[in-house]
Amino acid sequence: MKFGVVVFPGSNCDYDCYHVLANVLQVNTVFLWHEEKDLRSCDCVILPGGFSYGDYLRTGAIARFSPIMQAIRDFIAQGGLVMGICNGFQILVESGLLPGALLPNITGRFICKYTYLRVENVHTPFTHLFTPGEVVKIPIAHHQGNFFMHSPDLLTLRKQEQVVFRYCGPHGERDPRFNPNGSLDDIAGIASANFRVLGMMPHPERCAEDILGSHDGRKIFFSLIQWLEERKSG
């Protein structure tokens, strides 16, 4: 089992993802430079947070043209596992690999804080260890995380159970005051129709160790690892 963490110039959560995978969970992990054209037989690729290429244009708008994104496109077409966190989610959306758009936060400001999330779909490789409706505490840190799509698309997204995480209160209650950025339908993370590609604004790698105050994010990585292990042995 091998994980790859993509490094774009301007990625700044690449080491954090690497640390959690390689040092905390002790799985084989490599960095993948944005100019690489193949994924060195990784089983799962993480697109980390940060400001790829500075994001001076629109978040993720430049990164989608990098050489590695072609490789990721092919990987996804073959059913590969890809997880985009924060800027990674923005890049997946810009690349058309996940639906929707991520608009500037409704507050007009960058927001860094812990949020509560409700796990809406536990039938994905990223979430199968959760119980349906489980509430987890995972921080966000972004300026453009306000998920949007047109209503027919939203209906499809819901129908196909592609909504994986929603912002909520400490007990799973939904209320506008628990939605930090104005996201449509309180959406914090979505998956592709085949559930192999996940994009989420919150940062699970920031809460994967007890010393950091929450280890809720670790369960996402555990899910991935177990899913890959079962597939290998199965």
């Binding site: 927001i111 921080p139 840190a141 920031r206």
Partner: peptide, 27 residues
């Protein structure tokens, strides 16, 4: 103010701003 700053990147922040004196772990 501090919610506009990324105070967690590099995942070392043990005591978060606003809750006490900021403390960083050294991996």
């Amino acid at each position: 103010v501090y919610e506009q700053y990324d105070h967690m990147v590099q995942i070392n922040t043990v005591i978060l701003p606003g809750t006490g004196t900021p403390v960083l772990r050294v991996k």
